[in-house]
Every structure is written in C-alpha cells, then in structure tokens.
C-alpha cells in the first residue's frame, strides 16, 4: 500500500504523541505519511492528528490483553499497510513487541534510539542508539528496507499541537490470537507526584539505613521544594518507594540532584545524569558516585544533612525555583 509510511505504536498515550511528533518531522522532510496504531474505542485516537498522525489504524482491544495478541495484531497491520519504517515506544511492552515484530517481519531492529534519519534518496535509515546500559552510543547505518526502532519516554519532545485530523482507516483484522491465558492483573502503586518535572530531587541510596531516617531526607527536600527519588534496591528490596530512578526506572532532569548514600551504580546513574547539577554525600570516598558528581561531600549523611539545612536557613537562602 505505502512504502512511504512511518508506522508508530505505543500503548502509552504520552509516549505515542512524542513518537508521532518525531515521525511527523521526518515524514515532512520526505513527503511521507505517518500512521498510528491504536486500540479500537480509544477516545484519544481522534486527537492523534494533532500530534502529527495522518492515519489511524484501530486494532481490536483484545490486542492489548497479551504480548502475543499484540504482536499478531501489529504484524497483520504491518502486512497490510506495508510501512517503510516502524517506530515503537521503549516500554517493557514495546521492547518485547518490537523485537518479536522485527524477527517476524525480517526487519532490521535497533532499540533505545535517541536520533534517526532517513535518507530521502535511498530511503536508508541511520539511527543513534544507547549502548551498554547507556555508557555509550552506537550509530547504525541500515541498508534499504524495513527498519523497526524503539525510543524511550522523554527522548523526543512533546509535539506542539497542530490543527489536523487523522483519518481512521479500518483494516480487515481478525481477532488476534495468543496462547497466554491472562488470569488477572493488578496495578502497581504509583508515586503521587511527577518526579520527572521536579526542579530538585533528593536521591536516596542504601546508605540511608532506616525507614525512619527518611524524615531527615524529607526535611531537606521540603526545605528546597524538592521530591524524593531512590535507587532500585531501596524500592525493590526495601519497598520504601513504589518507583526508582535508573535505567529500568524513572529518569529525572532537575536543576539539582542531591544523592544521599547512593553508591553510584551505572544503571542508577542513567536515571539522574540529565540533572543540571549533581551533588553527592557519601561516607565512602571511593564510591563511584563521586566520579559522576559536580560536588562530592565525603561525610556521614546523618551529620551532613542537618548541617546543610541549618546553613541554608542561617544564611537566609532559597532555591531559584521558588518565587
């Protein structure tokens, strides 16, 4: 049907809009079309034109029930629509679907894409992708042919809304089948506040010994109008917070990230490295976090944090992000 189409999918609404915005830019440069895959009955489908979609392909809601059903639905859409390029969200659902889809369609595949370009003459794609748990970046130049890429939330900016309505195209799709039987599902507890938008984040590591000690950390956060984040073990082993910062968790970009008792595993640093400034308090001078921080304080956090609050108060200082 259209060898000049970018097909976009994410089950996460905000991420889908980010991907559509990026796809729109590339499509405009090439004179291509952008198509989004949505679940039938999704009320957001009609508004995807405003993010850049020309077309919307609804798939049966059953496709959202299990990975194999999703894969079968996406593969059938791709078979009928014949896109030249598929861009998907790098969520857990998306990473699984994209790798399976690339294998099934015999497409080139690259995950964790942060930039891509399509050559207008050859239609060959080039992608820059995060490598080695984000220590490095790879550039892949593909030969012409179908390419599947995934990109994480926040890689591409939220697109400015354009006045445009996407055409809904109902492809003849069967109910997607899958062999997994879903017995139940329970939502994870989410943090109430949006860490991603915080100007100040206090990052809690395993050096904070007891749950009661969070009061001390919270007092610093509230003094400077910040929010608490943590490393993965503090969330997964101790269960103090529902979410963590890191490669597999949230990524923050505050003006200041204050790491308290964080050792600085590379997988964790990925979550905080877009901070404008990183300050770290740790009593172990050899902690890797000090190599990644603007300011390292070698001290007992239980002595340092009260002193830090006291000096800010005594000097009458406030953060620039409060009026």
């Amino acid at each position: 049907m259209s060898a000049n189409q970018i097909l976009v999918f994410s089950e996460k609404a905000s991420l889908l809009r980010e991907l559509l915005g990026k796809a729109r830019q590339e499509a405009d440069a090439l004179g291509w079309q952008v198509a989004a895959v949505v679940f039938e009955g999704d009320p957001a489908a009609a508004s995807l034109g405003s993010a850049g979609a020309d077309l919307v392909y609804p798939v049966p809601p059953a496709a959202g029930e299990s990975p194999e059903r999703l894969l079968n639905a996406l593969a059938e859409v791709a078979r009928q629509a014949q896109p030249a390029f598929i861009l998907m969200g790098a969520t857990k659902v998306g990473m699984e679907a994209a790798a399976s889809l690339a294998e099934r369609l015999d497409a080139a595949y690259a995950p964790w894409t942060v930039r891509f370009q399509i050559d207008p003459t050859t239609c060959a794609a080039t992608a820059q992708c995060m490598l080695f748990a984000s220590s490095g970046m790879a550039t892949y130049q593909f030969t012409p042919g179908l390419v599947v890429l995934t990109s994480a939330p926040g890689v591409f900016p939220k697109p400015a809304e354009v006045e445009k309505t996407a055409r809904v195209v109902s492809l003849p799709l069967a109910q997607p089948q899958g062999r997994l039987e879903v017995l139940g599902s329970r939502e994870k507890v989410r943090g109430a506040t949006s860490l991603e938008d915080a100007r100040f984040v206090v990052d809690v590591g395993q050096g904070v010994k007891q749950r009661e000690d969070l009061a001390l950390v919270e007092s610093v956060a509230s003094l400077l109008g910040g929010q608490l984040g943590c490393s993965r073990p503090v969330s997964s082993d101790r269960d103090w917070f529902p979410e963590w910062l890191g490669l597999s968790g949230k990524k923050v970009k505050p003006d200041l990230c204050l790491c308290v008792g964080v050792s600085g595993a590379v997988q964790h640093l990925v979550g905080i490295r877009d901070s404008q400034r990183i300050a770290a308090v740790n009593n172990d001078e050899g902690a890797p976090i000090f190599n990644q921080a603007d300011y390292g304080v070698v001290a007992d956090l239980y002595e340092f944090l009260p002193a830090f609050s006291e000096r800010i108060r005594a000097r009458g200082l406030r953060p620039t992000w409060t009026a």
Binding site: A107, A108, A124, L131, S134, S135, G136, M137, A138, T139, Y140, Q141, F142, T143, G145, V147, R273, I278, E285, F290, N291, Q292, A293, D294, Y295, G296, V297, V298, A299
Partner: peptide, 22 residues
C-alpha cells in the same frame, strides 16, 4: 545483516568533580 555500517562512541560525562572532605 541489514547493517551497512556501525560505530560506537562513549558518552563523556561533563561534571565538575569537586570533592569536599576532611
């Protein structure tokens, strides 16, 4: 293979690296 070429670089961290101690 569908790769015409590939290359890798490291991500250089630009941090001040000031340490206060003692």
């Amino acid at each position: 293979s569908r790769l015409a070429s590939s290359s890798q670089i490291g991500i250089v961290v630009h941090r001040k690296g000031q340490v206060f101690k003692g």
